[in-house]
Design a protein around this nucleic acid. Structure first.
Length: 284
DNA sequence: AGACATGATTTCTA
DNA sequence: TAGAAATCATGTCT
């Protein structure tokens, strides 16, 4: 029964019209992404689902036919036997019951394997990792601008995340993912990001100079040359992220760690690891 | 084809 | 429960 329900829900069993499209739409919605080529993948999903559906129905038909044929065959046999021995209606009923049970268990297997096929298709369709798309250049730019102009505390608030998400045309959780990835990758390899940081520092500085104020997305904080001083007033590199005392794997360059607690409290001028004593971003 | 980049997921922790 | 860290899976570049 559960298998039946599932096949019905997936549009494999049940009426042909629109079969699967609802499920595909639901799957697409669950996937969360609003990719431009969604319709392509959507139709791909539908095609595959209708393939499964076709196989399922043709197999089902075959089984039903075979079941009927076998039943009549057995009935004929019993009829023949009734000439030589008494065959009660009860016996006939029993035989038919056995045959039907056998065939329904075969049908069950068919349903089960169809369900599996649908699940695999669905998981492929839904698995966001499989359909990962890089963000647009403009979106990455917006995120990077925010990140580098908040280097001292790259933890956007919920509102900031929402605003960034809106600007970038992505979801809030994608923004969170992006910042999570960015923070960890930045910390792991600051050297590699210095050039990028410098570029955004210049950008922010230029746009600040042009607008004669803060850049629109960095209302309260300073851009990179002005950057890390967000709240600290310190000229030291105040990067102190990381909820636990994070130690850089290679304390060669101006390593840093962020402190989650620094989100709530204005960053303390405080105990920077010696590795933070040098200015960051190759601006020394 | 392989290396690297990057978005998403999983696991763990405070 | 948000974030760190590790890892996965795909995209992109050479």
């Amino acid at each position: 029964m559960r298998l039946d329900n599932m096949l019905l829900a997936e549009g494999v069993a049940g009426p042909e019209k629109g079969g699967g499209s609802a499920a595909a739409a639901a799957a697409a919605a669950a996937a969360g992404g609003v990719s431009p080529d969604n319709s392509i993948e959507h139709s791909d999903y539908r095609n595959k689902l209708s393939q499964i559906r076709q196989i399922y129905h043709s197999e089902l038909e075959k089984y039903e036919q075979a079941c009927n044929e076998f039943t009549t065959h057995v009935m004929n046999l019993l009829r023949e036997q009734s000439r030589t021995r008494p065959v009660s209606p009860k016996e006939i009923e029993r035989m038919v019951g056995i045959i039907h049970r056998k065939f329904s268990s075969i049908q069950m297997q068919l349903k089960q394997s169809t369900c599996e096929a649908v699940m695999i298709l669905r998981s492929r369709f839904l698995d966001a990792r499989r359909k990962r798309r890089n963000f647009s250049k403009q979106a990455t730019e917006v995120l990077n601008e925010y990140f580098y102009s908040h280097l001292s505390n790259p933890y956007p608030s919920e509102e900031a995340k929402e605003e960034l998400a809106k600007k970038c045309g992505i979801t809030v959780s994608q923004v969170s993912n992006w910042f999570g990835n960015k923070r960890i990758r930045y910390k792991k390899n600051i050297g590699k990001f210095q050039e990028e940081a410098n570029i955004y520092a210049v950008k922010t500085a230029v746009s600040a100079a042009q607008s004669g104020g803060d850049s629109p997305n960095t209302p309260s904080s300073a851009g990179t040359p002005r950057y890390p001083s967000e709240g600290t007033g310190s000229q030291q590199h105040p990067l102190l992220w990381g909820r636990s005392s994070w130690e850089p794997p290679l304390p060669t360059t101006s390593a840093s760690c962020w402190n989650r607690s620094s989100q709530e409290l204005p960053p303390q001028p405080a105990p920077l690891p010696c590795s933070l004593q040098r200015p960051l971003l190759g601006l020394e």
